[in-house]
Amino acid sequence: MTATDLLVQQIINGVSLGAMYALIALGFTLVYGIMELINFSHFNVFMVGSYIALYVLEAFGISGQSTLMSGWPLVGVLVVALLVAMVGCGFLGVVIERLSLRPLRGVKGPSAMITTIGVSYILFNLVLLFLGTDTKNYPNPLPPLTFAIGGAVLRLREILIWVISLALMAGLYVFTRRSKMGKAMRATAQDPDAARMMGVEVDRVIMTAFFLGSALAGAGGMIFGLYYNFTSFVIGYSAGLRAFTAAVLGGIGNVPGAMLGGMIIGLIETLSGQVVAVRWTDVIIFSLLVLVLVFRPAGLLGRVAPNKS
């Protein structure tokens, strides 16, 4: 591989990772935009999603390098796995919100954020307790079809990841722009009290935000498994933190910002692994996070709210 090929290859990989980070980042952003809450439980909702999709795939007999299915049946199973992971995570998100966050509505200070840290710990340790510490292999059911771009290789896997992510993000965008609930969400994000007085049921809006955000994280969880061919109870923290950085980078609370931030983080991850060293990748990403917050706290696309007094 020449240097250019390597660069192209890392960009392909980076965009795939970026799409996954963007999906997770959207969950952070949706909730933050409406409640101004950093939802740490989201990290492990994502992790649970990758397990759910794995078990659905295994239930259909797809495991390892299986070529059991191909064509439309395979597409069907992948879609089912994706949907089950998304709906499962969506409900998990709603339950978390209902049980641990709704009672804290209106409580000032860091209580809600600390609660989500606790919920995140609970999810993490429940998976650890019941599913064990070992890393689980993820199936790679796709036919080994590849396209050569110069010396770089574009696999069917990457294309699948891009298609899923694009479709979901486009869907979310249309939902927030066109639907009635989407309008209510945007209104609540601007001013919850005014929205409430205009007849918006803020509790339902929050529930929807948790459902959508968690569902996207579930999709992200499946993509993680397909990309890396494994899943483990520890993936929530590292991937979640990078996705969170993506959300902040793009401007937390800002939907297109989360997508942009995800792409940037994905590319930084693969390119810095290439240029510097993988072991410094996290330092680069977190330094970037600190720098963005210090010099442009609203992120790349966000706006700073004026100081109210």
Partner: peptide
């Protein structure tokens, strides 16, 4: 440089710092 950030942003920055130090 970071303490002028709003509460939850400060939490994130400290989280980042807390990650960087063990990696270093």
């Amino acid at each position: 440089p970071t303490l002028r950030l709003r509460g939850d942003y400060l939490a994130i920055v400290t989280l980042g710092f807390g990650e960087i130090v063990p990696i270093v």
